[in-house]
């Protein structure tokens, strides 16, 4: 029966921690799609190699003036609140704007929020394939001929659990301390 497998786990979490997680929790989490990109420093990031860790993913763009930096700021506060336990969490920003975001820009962008954050970009083909695999959308808005176009992109932080399953979608606006409290329940 769908949903029944993790029901005992979810209710135990509720009992232990008092309040539910502030995001969309998958009842029956499925293995996350593949995500493999090469970072600017030459290291290859492959989601499948991160099992045992919690992976937070945000699909944004570095020219984003409002939502992306707000989310990254909350991630940074969550990481600080987690202290040593943050060693078991990967924070990964993935650009949905490969035309402007080089791997160098993406990495520099992520690191300005926390030195341990990873920022990835890729070729247009790599990002298009990733969008398809993850069933997500992202597209330029405004005048596409202007270099100042903005990008509509997924709102949520995607959380892949320690077994590699897409587990929670956190909406924007979940503050750092709240996010840390919820991540503790997933660690």
């Amino acid at each position: 029966m769908r949903g029944s497998r993790f029901f005992p786990l979810v209710s135990a979490t509720l009992l232990a921690c008092g309040e539910p997680i502030r995001g969309v929790v998958m009842d029956d989490p499925e293995p996350a799609p593949a995500l493999t990109l090469t970072a600017f420093d030459g290291t290859r990031f492959a989601l499948e190699n991160e099992k045992g860790k919690l992976v937070l993913l945000y699909f944004g763009y570095t020219h984003c003036p409002d939502v992306c930096p707000t989310t990254m700021g909350d991630w940074a506060r969550a990481k600080r609140a987690l202290g040593e336990r943050a060693e078991r969490v990967r924070f990964v920003f993935v650009s949905m704007d490969p035309d402007r975001d080089t791997p160098e820009l993406a990495l520099g962008y992520a690191r300005q929020f926390d030195a341990a954050f990873l920022g990835l970009s890729g070729t247009t083909e790599e990002i298009e394939a990733l969008k398809k695999a993850w069933s997500i959308a992202a597209y330029p808005e405004g005048d596409p001929r202007s270099r100042d176009y903005t990008v509509a992109h997924p709102a949520h932080t995607f959380v892949v659990d320690r077994q590699g399953r897409l587990r929670v979608l956190f909406p924007p606006g979940v503050r750092g301390e709240e996010l840390a409290a919820d991540l503790r329940k997933l660690l």
Partner: peptide, 28 residues
């Protein structure tokens, strides 16, 4: 704005500030 799981950003040409009230410009 957020709809359909997507974040969008749109220009607006004006913004009302009602009498005896306040309007916050804030993240998101």
């Amino acid at each position: 704005t957020q709809h359909g799981g997507m974040m969008h950003m749109s220009p607006v040409t004006s913004l009302p500030v009602p009498a005896v009230d306040s309007v916050m410009f804030r993240p998101l």
